[in-house]
Design a protein around this nucleic acid. Sequence first.
DNA 1: TCCGTTAGGCACCGAATGGTGCGCGATGCG
DNA 2: CGCATCGCGCACCATTCGGTGCCTAACGGA
Lengths: 118, 118
Amino acid sequence: MFLADCQARLAFDLLAPTWNAVVVCALRHGPRRPGELRAEIGGISPKVLTETLRRLEANGLVARRAYAEAPPRVEYELTELGQTLLGPIQAVGKWALDHAEDVLAAQDRWEESLETSS
Amino acid sequence: MFLADCQARLAFDLLAPTWNAVVVCALRHGPRRPGELRAEIGGISPKVLTETLRRLEANGLVARRAYAEAPPRVEYELTELGQTLLGPIQAVGKWALDHAEDVLAAQDRWEESLETSS
DNA sequence: TCCGTTAGGCACCGAATGGTGCGCGATGCG
DNA sequence: CGCATCGCGCACCATTCGGTGCCTAACGGA
């Protein structure tokens, strides 16, 4: 597992872009419109949100539904495949909540050691 | 969870660089020297390996031990914090093994639809 | 008629990541 | 002496990702 060309790498490519996991998580309770996602997530620009949704769609994690109305209405929702990803994502999220302090403390120690040595 | 400034984002920043999770996993059975890691992982350049190890060290996930010998000898091993990350990493890896086919099939469908529409 | 709303395309920029190639220092071996 | 080994630093390059700003299409309301 996890050698150079292992399939397990595929999942990390999916989760690597900053907002992918955030958007998947924001969709966990059902379909959402882009405007709702922007409001709920906060701090994501419209361009990046559509890019993120396109990536997720290209990998079969979300489905896009457009309605021929005006003003235009679009909804995104998790596919079955996307929902199976919620478990691993939340496992990582839980680890972060449990150990964020340790990581931040380690980062501080690292900064200090850089100053000391310079 | 997973709003713009949530702590959970921290873990994804840790796992985002391509090789971080691979290297953490390669260290799961004890200390390793850089040369061993390069051979075991395969496909990673020396520069990128040291960069990856520096990042992991800066976040308190691995510890570096240098021995004053010649030729120089260096060992890296997981810290306690690094070992706690093995669980979530393997949860994601297991998802990838279980669903890699679905993702690849979705990617193929996406490519096809691009050709059709163009 | 003019404006706001909604989704999203396009041009451009800056930072991070990954990769190649070259070099250094210190030692052991032929 | 000359060379290989090992870890690692530096210069340089290409790609990706995130971000800002500007524009379009289509309709409803003032």
